[in-house]
Write a protein that binds this DNA or RNA. Sequence first.
DNA 1: CTTACCATGTAAGGCGTTACATGATTCA
DNA 2: TGAATCATGTAACGCCTTACATGGTAAG
Lengths: 181, 181
Amino acid sequence: MANEKKIDCVILGLLSHEELTGYEIKKRMDTTLKYFWSASYGSIYPALNDLVNRGLAIKKEDTESKRNKQIYTITKEGRDYLKKWLTLPIEKDELRYETLLKLFFGNEQSVEQALFHIEAFEKKIEKELPYLLNAEETLNKNLNNDIAHKYYLLTVEFGIKTYRTYLEWCKEAKDFLSDEG
Amino acid sequence: MANEKKIDCVILGLLSHEELTGYEIKKRMDTTLKYFWSASYGSIYPALNDLVNRGLAIKKEDTESKRNKQIYTITKEGRDYLKKWLTLPIEKDELRYETLLKLFFGNEQSVEQALFHIEAFEKKIEKELPYLLNAEETLNKNLNNDIAHKYYLLTVEFGIKTYRTYLEWCKEAKDFLSDEG
DNA sequence: CTTACCATGTAAGGCGTTACATGATTCA
DNA sequence: TGAATCATGTAACGCCTTACATGGTAAG
């Protein structure tokens, strides 16, 4: 029972909340999970097939809509698999920030270039923060309706706090570099 | 000149500071760059050979020490390559936190289990923070000796600020989950 | 009628880790 | 003399992204 593939666990996790199509799973990744996880169609669709083959999810054709939709539902076995994975200790938390990497080697570039990278980073964060704040508000309103919201809120709070810290750091870093020329 | 492999750039960046062996490069990764980048021997050694073949670094046998050391030095071309890469916009900043993933699916686990993951995360951060604080102190003392220190300090400050925020979040998250039971 | 979005999937290739394989040196 | 650390490298394999390929539907 070792070697749980992360992609399987993420998908099963999303399916544990609601039944979804592959396309919708991708959308969740690009919005809700965006700031701490990601995956492409090229890994999602094969993984879904695999989950069905292993009996962890079932696939049914959508007859109601006019679109060619494949809807996936988690099975009892899938839920057990997910639960088992959740009991295991965390294997890896990984941060790969190219921005920090380029900054680290800043002595090979001009101050202007370093500032340029910091500002680009700042803008990206400033653009994403409102979505998290919006999610926070919605979740706080509906906190009593669904326990799942409680956990979702915790991750959103993580995102908000770290993003605000990033913005603080950007300001300080810009000052530091500008002052010294 | 597109498609710069990150592993090449990190190595060249480290070599831009000083000449190093593959083993030392790995050590830098595991200490200095640890909280925002990583790589294994299996990618470092082949990359070094590749850099030499492309004329971006030179390899010389160490004759002084008794060990079988291969010392790598960056060339003019390597430095130009690095500089070029530094001018390009950041392609990807990525965070993959399994801790957040497991927390997100918390409705499938007990509160105790969720707390367990948060506490493990907290301990890991508490253990690593002192190294960053130590680096900060040393860098502040030697700030005037080398411009490279300035940039190194910026990344360390990023690490310290975000780690402190993580610890704050851990405390709040634990309270939040404990209160509601 | 055309643009944006919904929707599914495959193939090739890149990138990187893990595990393996080997051996020297230093220190207790 | 045994453990820890220094030191280099390869092979197999896994995982994932990118690019490709295709087509339906909703809205303006």
